[in-house]
């Protein structure tokens, strides 16, 4: 009895229920959802967003939202692609990958430095750095769309496996890059659960002063978390660029809203020390599902923003209130 009550106090339950209901709705209309191709397409569509979700989760858990990652991801992917994206580079994919990660980490360090040193809202700090990153990309570097060649393009089109729907005969490929997502999630899972860094991240999120008094090096942990976040964001940008097969600097911009929404939907509260990988996954998958399948339900594309907005609002209201009843604390302020 108690455990059932507990289950219905959790945001995750509702998110999964909504996702299932939506899936059933799409399935009944189109018959394309609960099939092997449908699932592979969903995995492929949410791949990059899952990576960005990790960045956002790290930031949301310890301090607050990070809105600079799309600019940072675009900037680092752009620089990497400019260096390694040509025909002349035919070497290993690991070098551009690591270079991209390093650029992202440097960008993340700027966020981390300011966030660790001062007690500013992360939203405002990252708005500032976001403007700097995108300014650098368009101003001095004169970013524009270019098609990729060589190793990066090959890596982007490599498949892990492909499936064929026996009913419709449609084919769907899962890119090799999906492995990166799995490895990243395993690494972050390990970091969050079994290291002082991970435990400290949650401690800082729930109460910074208490974390400091109990001996966590809060400044160091905050700095590390943003650096890691920057590196992960760069990986996301790298994956996106390889996958599309072209440098398109403006594509990712504005995506921060969707990811923040996905994380909140999944049950992560900004700066509350709450959040896990599972929350990111269900939030991202639900939002991507809705975005990709509205057309299947016969709803015009320009209704997409209304739906996303409404879902964010309803989701946050429900999750805030379920959290309050869950913890049993009546918040006054």
């Amino acid at each position: 009895m108690i455990s059932i009550k507990k289950i219905f106090n959790r945001t995750e339950t509702y998110v999964i229920l909504i996702a299932l209901l939506f899936g059933i709705a799409v399935e009944t209309v189109s018959g394309q959802f609960f099939s092997n191709t449908g699932m592979v397409n969903l995995a492929r569509a949410s791949m990059v967003y899952l990576v960005f979700g990790l960045t956002e989760m790290l930031s949301l858990t310890c301090a607050g939202p990070d809105v600079s990652y799309p600019a940072l991801a675009s900037l680092s992917a752009f620089i990497t692609a400019k260096i390694f994206g040509g025909d002349s580079y035919g070497g290993s994919i690991f070098i551009p990958f690591l270079v991209c990660m390093a650029i992202g980490a440097v960008g993340g360090m700027i966020n981390g430095f300011i966030m660790a040193k001062f007690n500013f809202p992360s939203l405002i700090v990252t708005l500032g750095t976001s403007s700097i990153f995108s300014g650098i990309m368009y101003g001095p570097l004169k970013a524009s769309n270019t098609v990729l060649h060589g190793t990066m393009a090959q890596f982007g089109s490599a498949k892990l496996f492909s499936v064929t729907n026996p009913g419709s005969g449609l084919k769907a490929d899962l890119p090799l890059q999906f492995l990166i997502v799995i490895i990243l999630y395993l690494i972050v899972f390990f970091l969050l659960r079994y290291t002082i860094f991970g435990r400290g991240l949650y401690a800082i999120g729930s109460d910074k002063v208490a974390a400091e008094r109990s001996g966590f090096k809060t400044a160091q942990i905050t700095f590390l978390s943003y650096t890691l976040g920057g590196a992960i964001a760069a990986i996301g940008g790298f994956m996106y660029t390889c996958n599309v097969g072209a440098i398109s600097p403006s594509d990712l911009m504005g995506g921060e809203m969707i990811i923040i929404a996905a994380c909140t939907l999944g049950g992560i509260r900004p700066g509350a020390g709450l959040g896990g990988l599972f929350n990111v996954i269900i939030g991202v998958v639900l939002l991507i599902m809705i975005q990709n399948n509205l057309l299947m339900l016969g709803i015009p594309l320009y209704y997409q923003d209304v739906f996303t907005g409404a879902i964010i609002l309803i989701g946050t209201v429900v999750s805030v209130n379920s959290l309050r009843s869950h913890s049993g604390i009546k918040r006054l302020g």
Binding site: M257, I260, A261, Y303, Q304, D305, V306, F307, T308, G309, A310, I312, L313, T316
Partner: peptide, 9 residues
């Protein structure tokens, strides 16, 4: 953020 998205929509 959410209401902005909704109003944009």
């Amino acid at each position: 953020l959410g209401s902005g998205q909704l109003i944009l929509g």
